[in-house]
């Protein structure tokens, strides 16, 4: 089980990577490599060129600019896990982080890589959707921002163009009224979840408003449960569960019926987190 042959180029600048992608349509970008390398080893993917972007300066880092948190694409999971800025201003990311893989994976895996790969069972894409974040991308035509609602297109498919590189994600910075919730059910710690739920809301007196529920592991992309959001904002958890209209497929770990049931259980658990007063 060895990868098919490929060439390798470590680039130092985004422009260099973008140009190389233009010249090599079979090229793949290599960031943390924690998903890509496994597919290469299994020959599920056989690019002719790997463009290693780990040497591009300025793409890692976590910064707050007023009411926005910007996380560079090459920020490793472990950096986010230990970041005070994340803990304070992006608590949903902080809640999700311990569920992602294992220590050695989090040491290498990047946040940008996870969002670009867009595994429908992964935690971070759902967090991004729940937070109504933005993806920043750079391509031959320059830089652009993509709203999360426009970003996830299909199974492992995003709005990124063939020569575009995800450079950062931007999230609204949490304040005193931000509420977040996160839960997932995986048969073993660190595995992809059977079903998971990332949620954000704003405190509204004793209730909630702007509720965003983003499920993962139940479709081709992370999915909002908009009807349940409205019910939850109305303070009715039972109605929110009843309003779930997910339509998952059977997979190896669980049937659609199990996933739907568990989605309801998670909603109750996450709703309880959202109701809690949070620091």
């Amino acid at each position: 089980m060895k990868p098919a042959p490929f060439a390798y180029k470590k680039v130092r600048a985004l422009d260099e990577a973008i140009a190389l992608m233009g010249e090599n349509l079979d090229a793949r970008l290599l960031a943390g490599g924690q998903s890509l390398m496994a597919t290469l080893n299994m020959r599920l993917s056989a690019p002719n060129l790997l463009i290693d972007i780990n040497g591009i300066g300025g793409l890692d880092g976590i910064a707050r600019n007023g009411d926005t948190i910007e996380i560079g694409a090459l920020t490793r999971h472990v950096q986010a896990e230990r970041s005070d800025t994340i803990a304070r201003y992006a608590p949903l990311i902080a809640r999700a982080m311990p569920f992602i893989g294992h220590a050695a994976i989090r040491n290498r895996g990047t946040l940008g890589g996870s969002i670009a790969f867009a595994d429908p069972a992964a935690e971070l894409p759902a967090c991004l959707l729940a937070l109504d974040g933005e993806v920043t991308a750079q391509g031959p035509k320059g830089k652009r921002s993509i709203r999360t609602s426009d970003y996830f297109k299909g199974l492992y498919e995003t709005a990124l163009g063939p020569q575009e590189i995800l450079t950062a994600i931007r999230l609204p910075a949490a304040d005193g009224n931000t509420r977040t919730g996160f839960a997932e059910l995986a048969r073993r710690h660190g595995d992809y979840a059977i079903v998971g739920l990332a949620a954000s809301a704003r405190a509204d007196g004793k209730g909630l408003k702007d509720v965003r529920l983003a499920y993962f592991g139940v479709g081709n992309t992370p999915l909002r449960a908009t009807k349940s959001e409205a019910a939850l904002a109305g303070g009715d958890v039972d109605a929110a569960v009843a309003a779930l209209d997910l339509d998952p497929h059977d997979d190896i770990q669980a049937s659609a019926a199990v996933k739907k049931h568990l989605a309801g259980v998670l909603l109750r658990r996450v709703a309880a987190q959202l109701m809690e007063r949070q620091p």
Partner: peptide
């Protein structure tokens, strides 16, 4: 066996 969450539910 195995006793998966689905079977228990």
């Amino acid at each position: 066996m195995p006793f998966t969450p689905g079977k228990i539910l």
